[in-house]
Design a protein around this nucleic acid. Sequence first.
RNA 1: GCGGGCGUGAUGGAAUGGUAGACAUACCAGACUUAAAAUCUGUUGGGGCGUAGCCCCGUGUGGGUUCGAGUCCCACCGCCCGCACCA
Length: 846
Amino acid sequence: MSRFEPREIEPKWQAAWDTAGTFTATRDAAKPKYYVLEMFPYPSGRIHMGHVRNYTMGDVVARYKSSCGFSVLHPMGWDAFGMPAENAAMEKGTHPGDWTYKNIDDMRAQMKPLGLSIDWSREFATCDPEYYGQQQAMFIDMMDKGLVYRKNATVNWDPVDMTVLANEQVIDGCGWRSGAPVERRDLTQWFFKISDFSEELLDALDGLDNWPDKVKLMQRNWIGKSRGLQFAFSTIDAPDGHDRIEVYTTRPDTLMGASFVGISPDHPLAKHLEAHNPDIAAFTAECRKGGTTEEAIETAEKLGMDTGIRVRHPFDTAWELPVYIANFILMDYGTGAIFGCPAHDQRDFEFASKYKLPITPVFEPAEGADPLTEAYVPLKTEKVRYVRSFAGDEIQTGEDGVNTAIDFCESNGIGHGVTKFRLRDWGLSRQRYWGCPIPVIHCETCGVVPEAKENLPVELPKDVTFDKPGNPLDRHPTWRNCACPTCGADAQRETDTMDTFVDSSWYYARFTAPRATTPTVAEDADYWMNVDQYIGGIEHAILHLLYSRFFARAMHLTGHLPKKAIEPFDALFTQGMVTHEIYLTRDESNRPVYHLPEEVEDGKVKATGEPVQVIPSAKMSKSKKNVVDPVNIINAYGADTARWFVLSDSPPERDVEWTASGAEAAYKHLGRVWRMAGDIASQTGNGEGDDELLRAMHKAIHDVTMGIESFGFNTSVAKLYALANAIQKSKAGADTRRQAMLVMAQLMSPMTPHLSEEIWSLLGGEGLIADAPWPKADAAMLVEDTVTLPIQINGKRRSEISVPKDMPKEEVEKLALAHDAVVKALNGGAPKKLIVVPGRIINVVI
RNA sequence: GCGGGCGUGAUGGAAUGGUAGACAUACCAGACUUAAAAUCUGUUGGGGCGUAGCCCCGUGUGGGUUCGAGUCCCACCGCCCGCACCA
C-alpha cells in the first residue's frame, strides 16, 4: 500500500468534477433550489486562512444541500473597486485596473486547488464595465424614484495634500501621508435616502428568523428608533434669527433638572457666533480638529465654551440657563442641540462638574448611589419617585415618566412628541478614481441630470495618472467633457465615484444572471432569490448587511427584484476569524521585529537561534507577520487537510487559532482514514459486532447531519472521529465494514471531497460521491433499550441506575427510593421532594 | 465614549436548565523497531482519604433565581468586533 498523496488525488477529482460539470448551477423546475453565498473577497492578491475558512463552510453547505437533492447555486466573484488599487498605483506606478485583474487571476489560481464546488462560469468582478454599467442604470432608476439626492456633508480634509481622506487614512487626527492635522470640511455629496426605510428596515428584522440575534440587535440599535420631545428654548440676547433653540430629548421627564443648553460646533447659531467672535471662532476651530468618526468625537476630551447667551426654562421664565458650545454634540442627530441634565446623565454630569454648573436631581437617587460622584441613570423599566416633576410627584417607571412628560408638555404648548431615528442617509460620493462613476452630468442650463441610459456604461478612462494626491478624474483633460443628454449643450461629468458598498449591495442578485444586459432577469431572480444561506464575517453585521437590505428594497421599487427578495438573505451566519500567535524579537533600539511562523521553531528563530517572545492569538495581519499562507499548507498537506482543519475544533462563529500541530493532526487523521479504506477494500469474510457498528454508523449519520444543519461543523468533525474509531475497533464482517466506510466517506464528503471521492471509487461506490444522495439514518437504529439515569441527592450526583427506556415514571421513582445511596441518605426519613425527569435525571431533595 | 459579543483542563473545545470536560492536541507509559520516525494501545481537571472505592473543590470574579446553573438574571474584570470614507 502506497502513501496518502493528496497532491495526486486532488487534481484528479477536480478534473473529474469539471468534466462532469458537477457544479454548474441550472434552473431546474423539478428541483427545489438552494442558493449559498459567501461574502465575496476583495482581490488583494493573496488568499488568507479567513477566506479558506469562509469558503470551506459555504462549500460544506453547498455540497450537503446538493446531496440532499437541491439545485444549488454557489457562485464566486470579486469586490474589486477600492482604495488599495489606487495606493498600489501611487506606490508602484501600475494602473489600478491592471493591478486588480492581475490579483484576481492570482487569487483564483490560489483558490481553485481548494476544490470548492463553485460555478465559476458565473464569476465577475465589480470593476467589470458590464457590472458597474448595470449599477449605473439602477442608480438612474433610483434617481427617478426620488431615492437619490445631494446635500452638504462633512469629510476629512488633508490641508497639505489638498485631498479628502478616508477615516482609515486619519491616524491620531492627522493625514497618513502628510502628517498634517486633519480638518473637517463640507462638500456637496450624493446620498441614498435610506432613511425613508428606517421604520421598514427596523420592523422587517422581526421576520429574519434565521439571522443571529446579535446582528439583529446591532441593526436595531444602529437604526435607533426613539420617542422623545422636541421643543424650543427662547433665547435672551441672541443674534437675529436665533430667538429659539430647538432641542430634542428622549428624557423630557428630567427637564426640571436642566442646568445648561449645549449646541454642536456645527449648529447654525455656533456658525453665526464664530463669524463675529474670534474667541468662539478659535474654539469651534479647535472642535473641528480631528477625524469625522463618531468614535473620535465621542472619545475626545469633553470641551465646552459659554456663548454668553442665555435661554429661559420653558416652565419658569425666570429660570435662565447658559448656552454652551460643546464638542461632543453631533449635528447629525436630533437638532444638534441638547439640554444638559447632569444629575441623570453621566456625560452631562462630567461636563457640569468641569464647568461648575449646577447638578439638580429630578428623582430620588437609587439605594447607595452617590450623586456627588456619578449621575443616577435609572433603567427604562425601573420605578422611580420623582421629586421635581412638573407632572406631579409620582412613582412611575422611567418610560411612563417620559410619556407623562410628553403629554404634559404637549397639553401646555411646549413642543410635541416626535419619533426619531439615528440612521442617517447613505453618503455614497467618493472623490476617487477606482470606483463606479456616478452617471450624472452637470449642465449649465439643465442643472444636474442623469446620463442617458443608451450611453451607459460611463466607463472609467484608462489614461490617468496617480503622481499627485486627489481624484485623477478631476484633472483628466477630456473625460469630463460631454454633451448634456437633455439639451445637447457642452456639459461636464460628475467626477465622484460610488462608495464600494454600493457594488457589494446587489452582487448577490447579479449572480442569478451574471451576463444579462439588464441588471437582473426576472425569471432567474424569481428562481434563485433569495440567498438561502449567507456566510461572512461579523464585522459586516451592520453596514454591508443594512445597505444590502436597503438596496434590495430599492431594486424592488425600480423593478429589478421580486417582492419576495426585499429581504435578500433568508439565513445569515457570521463566522469568526482565523488567528495566530505573533512571534517577535527586539532590535538594538528595542523595537519589535516580527517573524513569520515558518521562520520560528521551538520558540527560537530558526536562522539565528534567538528566542522569540510569543504574543497569543491575534487576527492575522501582514504587519505582524502572523500569517499562514494557505498555498503553503495546500502544497504541504493538500486541500482536504486545510479544509478539515478549519472546520475542526473551533465552533464556526468563534475565532480559530491556526496551529501547526493542528494541521499536522488533521493530515494524520485523513491518512488514517485513507489506510483504513485500503484495508477494508482487501478484506473478506464474516466477523462479529456487525449490529454495533451499524448502530454507530446510523448514530453518526444523525449526528453529523444535525451538526451540518446547525452550523456545528466542529461537532460534526468530532462525530466523524468517533465513527472512524468505531470502524477501526470493530471486528464486524467485511461487508458491514465496507458499508460503514462508504457512509463515512459520504458524511465526510462536504468537508474532504477529494479523499471521499477516492474512497468511494476504491470501495466500489457508484458514480461520483458528489452526485450520491445523502445517507439517511434509520430511526430504529438510534434508540437504546436502556438508559442510565444519574441519581442526585440535593443536586449533587451520588449514584446512577440503569432502567428500561420506557419505564413509567412511578416505577423509576420507586426504584430510586429503594436505591442504596438514597436509602442511606434518607436514613429512614422521607424525601422533601423527588424529581424524576424521564430519560434524564433523578434528584432526591432531603 | 456608545452599541454588540465572548470567557470551560496544559491546549482547541463538548454539553435542548439535568452525569462538566465528548472529540482532538500535548504530555506520559507500553507495543512494534538495532534505533528513530511512522503506526497501534493505554493513562491524564485539581486536591484528599482508610485507594476494587469514597469525599471535597472546580466553567473569568462577586451576587441572585432554581430541586438543579457552564447555560437564565444583575454587577464587575479581561479580550474581541462595529461606530456611517477600510473592505
